[in-house]
C-alpha cells in the first residue's frame, strides 16, 4: 500500500471533516432539487436581497445548500493550503467552479445544461476531496482504473438528464446495468483472490455494498416517481428516495476512489500482515 507520507492526526481528522461536509453539501443539493427549490431564491450571492432570507418553504433548502457550500469552500481552501498537493489544488478549483455554476444557474433561471453540469461537478468535487483525504492518510490516489470513474460520472450525468426531462429513462437504466456489472467484475475479481487481505477486502466490499444499495435506491426512486410525480408536491417518499439515490451515487464515487487507491494487491503483503501507516479511519 502507498502509505508513505501519513499526515498529522489533526490533518487527517480535518480532511475527514471536509469530506463529510462535502457529502452533506451534496445531500443538501439533492434536497434542493427534489423539493424543486433551486430557484426559490432568485438572487445570488445574496438571498432575497440579504444575508439571511426568511426561512419559508423551499427557501430553507436553498439557503441551507448555500451555507453548506460556503462552509465546504472555506474548508477546502484550508485543506488545499494544508496539503499543497496538485490534487488538493484541483479540488479547490472544482469547488470554486461548482460555486460559480450554482450562481450562474440561479441568475440565468437554471438552464438545463447548467443544472446537469452542477450535479456532475458536485460528484467530481466529492471524489477529489476523498482522494485528498486519502492523501492525508498517506495513500497515493490512483486512476489505475479510469473506466470506473468514467462510468459513474456518466451515470450521474444521465441520471440528472432524466431528472430534468432531457432524456428518457432507458439510457440511465442501460448505463446502470453496464456500470454495475463492471464494478462487480472489478471488485469481485480482486476479492476472490484477496479475501484474507483486509486492505483489499474492505474497499472492495464497501464499493460492492454501496453499488447494490444504489441500484435498489434507483429502483425505489423510480417507482416513487411513477406513483407521485403528478401529485401535488412535496411528496416525502419521493424526496427521500431521490435524495438517498443522489447521496449514494456520491458515496459510490467516493468508494471507487478509495478502491482504486487502496486495493492494489500486487503491492500488498500477501497475507495481509502489518503495513506501515495503516489507515485507521
Amino acid at each position: 500500500m502507498h502509505l508513505t507520507n501519513v499526515g498529522p492526526l489533526w490533518l487527517r481528522r480535518y480532511a475527514l471533516a471536509v469530506s463529510g461536509c462535502t457529502l452533506l453539501l451534496l445531500i443538501a443539493g439533492g434536497l434542493v432539487t427534489s423539493n424543486d427549490a433551486a430557484l426559490s431564491v432568485p438572487d445570488w450571492p445574496t438571498s432575497w436581497g440579504s444575508l439571511f432570507p426568511p426561512l419559508q418553504g423551499g427557501i430553507r433548502y436553498e439557503f441551507a445548500h448555500r451555507v453548506l457550500a460556503l462552509l465546504a469552500t472555506l474548508m477546502t481552501i484550508g485543506l488545499a493550503l494544508a496539503m499543497r498537493t496538485r490534487l488538493a489544488w484541483t479540488a479547490l478549483l472544482a469547488v470554486a467552479a461548482q460555486a460559480a455554476l450554482g450562481g450562474a444557474g440561479v441568475l440565468l433561471a437554471e438552464p438545463l445544461w447548467i443544472a446537469i453540469a452542477h450535479a456532475c461537478l458536485g460528484q467530481l468535487q466529492f471524489g477529489l476531496v476523498v482522494a485528498v483525504t486519502a492523501q492525508a492518510f498517506g495513500a497515493t490516489p490512483s486512476l489505475s482504473r479510469p473506466l470506473i470513474f468514467a462510468l459513474i460520472l456518466a451515470q450521474t450525468a444521465l441520471g440528472a438528464a432524466v431528472r430534468y426531462g432531457v432524456i428518457g429513462l432507458a439510457a440511465h437504466l442501460g448505463g446502470a446495468l453496464v456500470a454495475t456489472l463492471y464494478l462487480m467484475w472489478v471488485s469481485l475479481s480482486l476479492l476472490m483472490n484477496n479475501m484474507d487481505n483486509p486492505s483489499v477486502r474492505r474497499p472492495a466490499m464497501l464499493l460492492l455494498s454501496l453499488t447494490f444499495s444504489q441500484v435498489f435506491l434507483g429502483i425505489a426512486s423510480y417507482m416513487a416517481r411513477v406513483v407521485y410525480v403528478n401529485a401535488p408536491q412535496p411528496m416525502p417518499l419521493l424526496i427521500f428516495f431521490t435524495v438517498a439515490h443522489v447521496a449514494f451515487g456520491s458515496l459510490v464515487f467516493g468508494a471507487a476512489v478509495l478502491f482504486t487507491t487502496l486495493a492494489r494487491p500486487q503491492q500488498l503483503p500477501v497475507s495481509g500482515g502489518p503495513v506501515s501507516g495503516v489507515v485507521t479511519a
Binding site: 453540469a117 468514467a150 456518466a154 444521465l158 432531457v166 432524456i167 439510457a171
Partner: peptide, 10 residues
C-alpha cells in the same frame, strides 16, 4: 470525459 458526457446528454 465527464465534460464530454455532460455536453452529449444535455
Amino acid at each position: 470525459f465527464a465534460l464530454l458526457t455532460l455536453i452529449s446528454c444535455s
